[in-house]
């Protein structure tokens, strides 16, 4: 029930965000319509980082409580995070090509995102190479913690190189018009709902899978 309501709410939010991005917010003066990708690019990046933070928290929670639900939250979050990071890595170059005249540069933000993507691909790979449920949960919790701690160090180590990624938000506030800020904020909210909708679905699937295993087990015992 809650999952369904969340689904509809997310649907309406994403629809509204799409309207704001394509119809309501004015074009950027220099870059033109291509700048509109920014609203979904930033929202995806936010969900990516948020999802990996959840993986980190779920990892700590799993190791201290050993409850299976934390493992499910962790893996669901990691999958969503990898998906949104992939979106970031695809939408970025689409924007960068006309704006920077290059698909890719080794800027700190770009490089950190790429390394992040590799770290969580490794996370999913570790899971797929372990059979035992308990060990799978334990190892991925540990790797989720190590990987997340690594991210800030990756960021600082790459930061000494020059940066050309636009800094839209700094300590003095937003470097955008108010309509743009509203649109960005709205798409961030819409994507956050999308994240929780995916998470609830993913957890639902995982729960059904566990139930299925239980049913199979009981059938095997009966016959």
């Amino acid at each position: 029930m809650v999952r369904k309501a969340l689904g509809w709410l997310t649907f309406v939010m994403i629809l509204a965000a799409t309207y704001l991005v394509f119809m309501w917010v004015p074009n950027e003066k220099v870059m033109g319509p291509v700048q509109k990708i920014f609203y979904f690019h930033v929202a995806s990046a936010w969900i990516g980082f948020f999802a990996f933070l959840i993986v980190f928290i779920a990892g700590i929670a799993y190791l201290s409580t050993r409850e299976r639900k934390w493992d499910i939250i962790g893996v669901s979050s990691a999958e969503i995070g990898v998906m949104f990071t992939t979106i970031v890595l695809i939408t970025g170059p689409i924007w960068a090509r006309p704006t920077w005249n290059a698909w890719w540069t080794w800027d700190p933000r770009l490089t950190t995102t790429l390394v992040l993507w590799f770290i969580y691909l490794a996370y999913l790979l570790i899971r797929s190479s372990i059979h035992e449920e308990e060990k799978k949960a334990r190892f991925s919790a540990i790797f989720g913690i190590i990987g997340f701690i690594d991210v800030p160090i990756v960021w600082f180590s790459i930061r000494w190189w020059r940066t050309i990624h636009p800094v839209v938000v700094d300590s003095s506030g937003f470097a955008m018009s108010s309509k743009m800020t509203t649109t960005l904020m709205f798409s961030l909210a819409a994507f956050t709902f999308l994240y929780f909708y995916f998470l609830s679905n993913s957890m639902f699937v995982e729960k059904m899978r566990t139930e299925l295993v239980g049913i199979k087990e009981s059938l095997r015992n009966r016959f």
Binding site: F118, I119, A122, L125, S129, I146, G147, D150, I153, I158
Partner: peptide
């Protein structure tokens, strides 16, 4: 299961810094 190939894949992204 596949320890020999897994190690470089999980280790390289971590040692980037």
């Amino acid at each position: 299961r596949n320890s020999e190939i897994l190690l470089p894949i999980v280790l390289f992204p971590l040692i980037v810094p």
